[in-house]
Amino acid sequence: MSVKHGILGILADGPRHGYELKTQFDGLTGGLWDLNVGQIYSTLERMRKDGLVALEESGEGADERKTYRVTDAGREELDGWLQAPPLRPRPLRDEFFVQLGLLIDRNRPAALALINGVRRVHHLRLASLTRQKVLLARSQERGRIHRELLLDAALLHVEADLTWLDRCEERLGALGGGPQAERPPP
């Protein structure tokens, strides 16, 4: 998994503390990947046991004092990973899928109401991502292109979710066929 490989990639530029790794990892993922510094330390420890990274001599003691460097085995692992397209890019695992599955035959109005609620959440998420995009467009930040592309990825996924919600609603039979036709006034 790519926390490990992200760390290797950052260490390939030179030795780092755990906290520096966390900051740079956030930069790589545009802050869209929720990772705490504890996960960095535990991953580093596992990687050290596997011989992918090693501790620098100077930095022994508490976690935050430790400095890590990449080993030759680590570089080899990184080079292999950078050339391999991920086979399972994104698990389709969403709380709402379970809710929908439970409601769909038991309580259809509740399922439809929930679809509306989820749609609202997605619109708010789109708006929040768009705000980040507007701020980014107005800044001259370094690494802007990568961050912009990450925001686009997030935006397009939410858009796909919204399209799918429309599909759910249609299939649940709630969608009327355009404006309602009425009898002409006598």
Partner: peptide, 23 residues
């Protein structure tokens, strides 16, 4: 386009001539 609408600070969705959602 939902991505375009996200530039708004309010999103009104219509259905059958009525307001379906106002966010």
């Amino acid at each position: 386009d939902a991505k375009a609408a996200a530039y708004g600070d309010r999103i009104i969705t219509l259905r059958d001539g009525r307001v379906q959602q106002d966010i």
